[in-house]
Structures are given as C-alpha cells and as structure tokens.
Design a binder for these strands. Sequence first.
DNA 1: CGGGGTGTTGACAGCGCTGTCATACCGCCA
DNA 2: TGGCGGTATGACAGCGCTGTCAACACCCCG
Lengths: 335, 335
Amino acid sequence: MSRPTIYDVARESGFSIKTVSRVINEAPNVRKETVDRVRAAIELLQYHPDPAAQRLGGGKLPTIGVLVDSIDDPFFAQVVAVIEARAMDVGMDVLVASTGMDETRLRMQIQRLARRGVAGLVVAPFGEPEHVSAALPDDVPVVVIDRRCGVTDKDVVRVTDEQGATDAVRHLVARGHRRIGFLGKTSAFNTLEDRYTGYEKALAEAGIEVDARLVETRAWTADEAYPYALAMLATADAPTAVFAASPMMGLGVLRAQQRLHRQDVALVIFGDYPVAELMTPPTTVIDQRPSALADTAFDLLARRIQDPAAEVLDTVLPTLLVPRGSGELAPRADS
Amino acid sequence: MSRPTIYDVARESGFSIKTVSRVINEAPNVRKETVDRVRAAIELLQYHPDPAAQRLGGGKLPTIGVLVDSIDDPFFAQVVAVIEARAMDVGMDVLVASTGMDETRLRMQIQRLARRGVAGLVVAPFGEPEHVSAALPDDVPVVVIDRRCGVTDKDVVRVTDEQGATDAVRHLVARGHRRIGFLGKTSAFNTLEDRYTGYEKALAEAGIEVDARLVETRAWTADEAYPYALAMLATADAPTAVFAASPMMGLGVLRAQQRLHRQDVALVIFGDYPVAELMTPPTTVIDQRPSALADTAFDLLARRIQDPAAEVLDTVLPTLLVPRGSGELAPRADS
DNA sequence: CGGGGTGTTGACAGCGCTGTCATACCGCCA
DNA sequence: TGGCGGTATGACAGCGCTGTCAACACCCCG
C-alpha cells in the first residue's frame, strides 16, 4: 500500500536487502545478472530509496543548502536557479535560506542547514572575518560565494571586483569624463572596498584626483542612495558620470536621474539587473555573471563533497563590461 | 564529539529517552519539574533533534517544498522569498524546485519532493487538468498557486485574472484609446484565457469591436513576443495602446517600442516587474501582488497540514492597478 | 590436492527517533 | 482494605537504510 521499501525489492528480486542496497549504491562486486534482476524489481515496484533513512547512520542527505542575503534579489535568484538546475541533474535537491543581512540569522541558518544533514552548503556570507569563520561549519563542505569575508579555509568563488571597477571607470574616462562620481558603502563588504580601490586606480591612471564631493560611501540600500545621488547630481559642479558600485546604488542613481530629468549623466553600474537594456538610455553594466559564479560554486562543492581533503581554492572569475548606452554618453558640453 | 543525541540528553537529565522525546514534542502527562530538568539538559548540550530520524517511522520533515516554473522569474522569486520567510518563523525550511515548463519534469519534481517526505507542497502547475490532477499527490498537503489548471480537490490561491485585465483595458479606454492591442498566449493557461476574456469584456463595454489584427495569441516568451509586437506597432493602423497579458509579453512590447523609438504607445502590463517605475515612461501594471499570494498560500498550507480534512478553498485575490505613466498616455493625435 | 586469495552474497547490528505497551505510584471510593 | 482509574515514566520494537563481518563458492599456485 505504502511506498515500497528495500525489503519489498529484496523479496521481489529474491536477494537480500544488502544486495539491493549494493545495487542502489552501485557498489562493486555484484554480479551483472544480479544487478539486472534487482534493477528489474526496482523498476517493477517503482522503488525509490528513502533519503531520510539513507542519511541515518552516517550518510548525508542528497541535498545542498544555499544561503543568500535574499532570495528575490535578482543576482541571488539566478544563483539559486543555476544551482537548483545543476543539482537536479545529479539527483540532488536544494534547500534555500536567507539571511536578511542579519548576522545572528546567518549563524542560525547555517546551523539549521548543517543539522538537516545537507551534503554541502553554498553561502554568501557577510560581516567580520572572525564571526564568519566561526559561523561556517567544519564538518560540512562549504563554498563561499561572492564575498570572501576573510575566509581562508573554504573554497571561495568571487569576481574581480577591483578590476571590474577599474574597467568601468576607465570606460568612462575614455569617453572624456573627468568628474566621475562613486556610490557604494565601502565599509559594508570587502567587495565594495575593492571596487572603490578599482575606482581610485582608474582615476589615478588618468591623472585625475579623487574629489571627495563625488564619493558617497554611506548608503547601502537604493532608498538610502537616492537622496545622496540626488544631492550629488544637483550640485553646481555635478559629476558628468557616475560609477554605481552595486545594483542598489545604481537604482538610487537612476531614480535621481529620473527625478531630475537628467538622462545625460553617464552611468555604469556594477552588477547587471533585469531589463537594464530597456532603460533610457540602456544601462551599461559590469556583469558579475551570476550563472558562471553559481556554476563554478557547484563544481567546487561537488569536488569537495567528493574529496573533503582537496586543496582549498580561491576562484576569481572575470567580470564583463556590457556597453549598452548609458556608459557611452559623452560629458555634457557645459560641464 | 559529534552532535548530541536524545541518549545524551537522557543521560544528562537522568530520564529515559522516551521522556526526553515527550518533552521535545510537548506531549501531555509530563511533570513540570521533569520538563524543566530535561529542558536544562537540552540547553546544556545544545541538543537539536535530527529531522531525518524524526521523519522515520511515520512523521514528516519540517520542510515545505516549493515548485515553480523558474526560480529566477521575479514573480516566483518573490513567492519563494515570502514562503521561506514564513517557514523560517515556524522553524521549517524550504526545498525549491523548478519545472522549466516541462510537463514531465513537473511530474518528476512533485514525486521527488513528495518522496523526500516534505510536510507540504506549494505548486505552480500548468498543463492539462487531467495531467495536473494526476501529478499532484494525495498523501501530501498541496496548495496550488497562480494557476488553477482545473484542480478542484486542492486548495488554490490565484488572482482575479479577468477582472485585472478588464481594469487594465478600461483604464486605457478611459484615456480615449479605441485601438488596443492584446498580447498573450491564451492557449497556454487558463489565466491567460481569463485575461483575454477580461480584455474582450472591457472592449465590449465600451462598444469597441475586437480587431483580430490587434490580437496576438501565439507568443509565449519575450523573444517570441518581440517580432509580433514589432509587426503590430509598425502597421499603418497600429494600436495606440497595448495590453500585455504577462510580463514576458510586456518585455516584448517594450523592446519593440525601443527599437521603433516609440514611447508614445500606451502600455499596461499584467504583472509587475523590477524597476518598472524607472522606465521611460514608467510602466503602468496590474500588480499580481506575489507577496500576498505567497502569504495566503502559506496560511492555507499550514491550515491543511494541521487539518488534512479541512474544506477545500479556492482563494481569489484582487489585483492592483498601479498607474505609473505608460498606461496614462493619450492616443497619438494622428491616429 | 591443500592453502590462500578474490568475488559474491547475506545476517545482523546500529543510526536517532517515536509508537506501543508495560510498570509504578498516587489518591480515592466502596 | 482491596481495587480502580489516572498520572508519570520506561523498556523495547520498529522506521528504512548502510556498515561490518562472516560465509561460501571459485580459482590459481605450489
């Protein structure tokens, strides 16, 4: 009546449950004919092993946990989507959890997922290195994505934050811009710090001095960025171009531009976002390529699950400058 | 060394594992003092029951499964996010899975989730009613979201598709539009069919006859919609307004508008999307309010988990017309 | 022809928990 | 005082699987 168990398969096939178990797990030293007979019984009964039972007595769930800031952030949504797709291919499923950018919750969620017996964890951490390191479990394979957070004993996949930012600002400089604004809460993550460094570097290359009035590092959300962007764009010596160090900063700038009816300010945003190509003008972005990041993270996780002692890797993927229009605007004539 | 088990708590507290189990499950007939002593031991050892073991021998995992078309669709991403948040509040976690709009995969994923022993399932189905009904399990609580698909024996949460569409088209008619295009693959879902009905109804009210040249029901993705939208907007007697029956159709139209440099065509899209308010002009939408939908779905699921025999509910939530600009454009003077 | 692999299979004990049933004790009434 | 019902607790058998170890059949070699 209920789901068939390994005992039903054993009875049906005429072998012991252990042999059935061997067939399920593709263990060596089972005669080909035996395998076939057991397989036939499995097929006949539509048997599927119970993951919870498999997990008992050692073992892990065929499940991988994904912990991100927020699931409906387009960047993370894509990460989750790719990981889910990859996991499905190998018969695993995905537990999602979010931190809401709360350190206590980050900790709690990691513990919960680990307790669930997941085979591996993909985590986008944040916060102080010592806290993060303490929060990450040592008995479960973990891959850290997007933000390093000082973690050195786990595999990490991230992007070239500094280089990407440099690319962005160089791109603007090449169009003739000299007054280039920066928005991004550099104190929040090392990634944003790196992006600021990239900004500085590109300016230095061009012999442009950093103008503190064009650098805004206090805002974190789009709502917070908006008034700053508004102020920055409204001043007398407003920047002719802006580098938004995150999509949220970008949204703040776009809102400000809309409010001021200023579509002439060049803009490059670090991080692609949906329908960026349909904006007026279409937004030039530094694409962090979340799919590639997630793909790599999955590969690394699979590798570590298979070999927990493998060498710890810090993978840095290149970003991609996607020119769409907003980053190619020339400086206003009157500035 | 390893995680403490119920035996450790039993030893520490001086009671049997069964009594500890009773305390964990808040069973009746346990002396208050005993409860306190056991709780203290649990606290001391930082004990947490193993969900996999709890699930064995009857029982369900403290987990709810969510199955949607695609996790990085903004609509579904928000649904997943809300459900994850609600689940976390009650100590459950969330398994995500996607169908990729493949019927076989829909079936497979449902079976996988059911086998995992989830306590409940939230599913956005599609396809023929008989297939969908066959695919949905009867031994696991299920809530169907967004699309009814002929399901009658499960709780359903959806929105007023027809009314929303009528609202949208009435809104356009009220601005003076008489030639109003429709895009949406009506054969795909009952929801799209309903939206078409709403379109027809609003036109009929206004005494406008449906012009077959303004109705495009073949496209499903944004890529497919684009050429149709292009064709529709480029003809001599092009519509002065368009009702896009889904966000994907909307993207197709927006691309066409961008391509043709036509920002004068009024547009209402069924379904909100990120940064719609930053478009030029900002896009007027019929908001399906995914958060409310997910909230309701969670409530219904909780209710059904608690009482599997509860009356089956078909909940229809209202949509919300959000005027932002594109839907308030007047007809072009020359049409 | 015996000894020592190697390949194939099964018996059985857990894994960490909950359900069933038994036990011990209490107060109470006849 | 015996017995009954109710409360508090524990012993023990599963749940469905995998790990350990033993058993048995072969085969090759000396």
